[in-house]
């Protein structure tokens, strides 16, 4: 009986271990390979040495990769685009949700339904109209008014700031906040914005974390197609798209592995640090990243 249970438990752990390995091995392989010269890297792939830090290890691949492409710039671009989008998204999505939940206005439920409905549109369906649109929008810069947003930061930021999901998550969370708190603040003389800033947002830590995590992953991982469509110049290229170009002008596997490691490590660190918040947020919202 107990033996039976032990065996089953063991079986389960072995299965989990096996699945974990499938996910972990490529990452270990990538990191190890990034320190090895190409020749050794290729030889090692036929044995377990591929996963071990053995042989001629150096940072040469990293040095080469940084020499060949402006990786520092790409990283800056990615961080700048992601951070700006994230902050604007948290602010605008939450304030929109605030208006949907706490303020009464005509037609609000219809508008909310429309907003939520846009969630079912995959990006690919709006990509082309969006491209035509941004190609014809004005922008105020040092040279005065210019037309067309191609090759810029704003073209990678503004279309991504607020999407239905973020508003929806804030709406759901705000609905569960005690309404009395908002009303008490109103009676005590707070304006709508003061209610938002001093009462509602300080109580919204969990949903802010959820939206921030989802948005970060969306911006960092999934934004590939759009930048390729709208950014040709290196100056505004994010690191994911940079990878694509890096592949094209290079078949030095060690350098590619170095580049991939540079991209992956921030996400890994992000995951490890926020692991618990991440699981909690997915469990509480039922939304998958």
């Amino acid at each position: 009986m107990t033996l039976d249970r032990a065996t089953r438990l063991m079986g389960r752990y072995l299965l989990l271990l096996f699945i974990a390995c499938i996910f972990v091995f490529p990452i270990i392989f990538m990191i190890m390979s990034s320190f090895k010269p190409d020749l050794q890297l290729l030889q090692d792939t036929s044995s377990v040495r591929a996963l071990l830090p053995v042989g001629d290890l150096s940072l040469d691949n990293y040095r080469e990769a940084f020499d060949r492409a402006p990786i520092g710039l790409f990283i800056f671009n990615s961080v700048f685009i992601t951070a700006t989008t994230l902050l604007l998204s948290l602010f605008l999505a939450s304030i929109a949700a605030f208006a949907f939940v706490f303020i009464d206005w005509r037609g609000k439920s219809v508008v909310l339904a429309l907003v939520v409905a846009t969630y079912i549109l995959p990006f690919e369906t709006v990509a082309v109209p969006l491209l035509l649109l941004v190609n014809n929008l004005p922008w105020l810069s040092a040279e005065g008014i210019t037309w067309g947003w191609l090759n810029s930061y704003q073209v990678q930021i503004i279309p991504w700031i607020v999407r239905a999901l973020e508003i929806f998550l804030f709406v759901q969370y705000f609905k569960d906040l005690p309404r009395d708190l908002v009303e008490a603040a109103r009676v005590d003389g707070a304006t709508w914005f003061q209610v938002y800033r001093r009462v509602v947002m300080p109580l919204s830590g969990p949903v802010i974390a959820t939206v921030a995590i989802l948005k970060f992953l969306e911006m960092y991982n999934n934004q590939f197609l759009w930048p390729i469509m709208v950014v040709q110049a290196e100056d505004y290229r994010p690191i994911m798209v940079g990878l694509q170009y890096f592949f094209q002008l290079n078949t030095a596997w060690g350098e590619i592995m170095a580049y991939l490691t540079i991209i992956t490590v921030p996400v890994l660190i992000f995951y490890l640090v926020l692991q618990r918040a991440f699981i909690a947020s997915i469990a509480s919202t039922g939304v998958k990243g």
Binding site: P178, D180, L181, E183, A184, A185, V187, D188, L203
Partner: peptide
């Protein structure tokens, strides 16, 4: 006007 709510509506933070 000032109002005291049934739930007290104290700001928890």
């Amino acid at each position: 006007v000032a109002m005291v709510f049934q739930s007290y509506a104290i700001f928890p933070h």
